[in-house]
Design a protein around this nucleic acid. Structure first.
Length: 299
DNA sequence: AATTATCCCAACCGCAGCTAC
DNA sequence: AGTAGCTGCGGTTGGGATAAT
């Protein structure tokens, strides 16, 4: 999903690297470095990662410091193996949300075509945000090394969560119509469905920034008092307060995706698992804003 | 015991989104 | 409006640990 860059242009793409590569240490962190970084953040707080290494006396790139803190040193980071319930949650969230490389999956949901951009809420970070103490890197690694292989061994495409060999699951019309390259569409699209929306024009009031603020809001709640109080320069601090209710509603929406999907799988225990996947609250409510409205009317 | 293959995770890299100037 | 700087995200990789031969 990476966009091509134009080499040789004098735009922002020619920005200087995040740190001078000269004299910067790379590779695994030592216990001493960990201690220096943790102590510094404990006293001074995180943020301003670019200058943090110098201030802390570390010969590390700012990005490296941030990554080390976020993925390892943070007090809220949970160590140890992934529990079965966590694994189950990862599977369900991945099936529902996918990652950026499996963006077409989410296209299968009508909501995407109704102007709701999921670009900002897809990804490991969002999945990790629903699993306390786990980092996006950890979830991503666990997925790539364990879960995707498990799915493949079960004949399931880990990207689409559909059978690798659809023939073995019958030859229904639905299967014949199933084409990963062609997004499924609602057989009964609403009258308001417009091609312009399909082309990506946002007509829904639910803007991307609100969703991103949800991620940050959720993350800050998770981080809590771990000295990360400095809002990022690109943060949506003000929105966090103003959109708090929407953030909460979005969180509820996400919870419903998990719960409903779980119920559908239970209901389809002896049926076609894959048919169940096509049903989701997204389809039911059209888009999260509809979901919000629904639940505000029916708390 | 030595060598090779595989697994796994921490860390790196490139890019996007955002704000400030 | 354009540019620079910062942070965060996802994909990828390097290399240590472990298993297999």
């Amino acid at each position: 999903m990476k966009k091509p860059i134009l080499l040789g242009t004098s735009t922002a793409t020619s920005r200087t690297p995040c740190c001078s590569k000269v004299g910067i240490k790379k590779g695994p962190w030592t216990a001493e470095e960990d201690e220096v970084l943790a102590n510094y953040i404990k006293i001074e707080g995180g943020g301003r990662w670019r200058t943090l290494p110098k201030r802390a006396g570390l010969l590390r790139c700012g990005k490296s410091c941030r990554l080390r803190w976020m993925n390892y040193l943070r007090p809220t980071v949970k160590r140890g193996p992934i529990a079965p319930d966590e694994e189950d949650l990862i599977l369900r969230l991945h099936r529902l949300l996918g990652n950026r490389s499996s963006l077409p999956d989410i296209h299968n949901h009508d909501a995407y075509f109704r102007g709701f951009s999921f670009d900002s809420l897809l990804g490991w970070a969002l999945i990790a945000g629903r699993i306390p103490g786990r980092t996006d890197n950890e979830i991503k690694n666990y997925w790539n090394t364990h879960l995707s292989k498990n799915l493949i061994s079960q004949g399931i495409d880990p990207r689409t969560h559909k059978p690798l060999n659809p023939v073995s699951h019958g030859s229904s019309q639905a299967d014949q119509d199933d084409d990963d390259d062609v997004p499924e569409s609602n057989p009964n699209p609403p009258s308001s469905f417009k091609s312009s929306e399909l082309m990506g024009e946002k007509t829904n009031s639910m803007e991307t920034t609100n969703l991103e603020s949800h991620q940050i809001y959720q993350h800050q709640q998770e981080v809590g008092d771990d000295c990360m109080g400095q809002p990022s320069s690109s943060g949506n601090g003000g929105d966090l307060v103003e959109n708090g209710n929407e953030d909460h509603m979005f969180s509820l929406f996400l919870d419903s995706l998990i719960t409903d999907n779980q119920q559908q799988q239970q209901q389809s225990n002896n049926g076609d698992l894959w048919e169940a996947e096509t049903m989701s609250p997204m389809v039911e409510f059209g888009n999260p804003q509809n979901y919000f409205n629904h639940h505000q009317q029916h708390p």
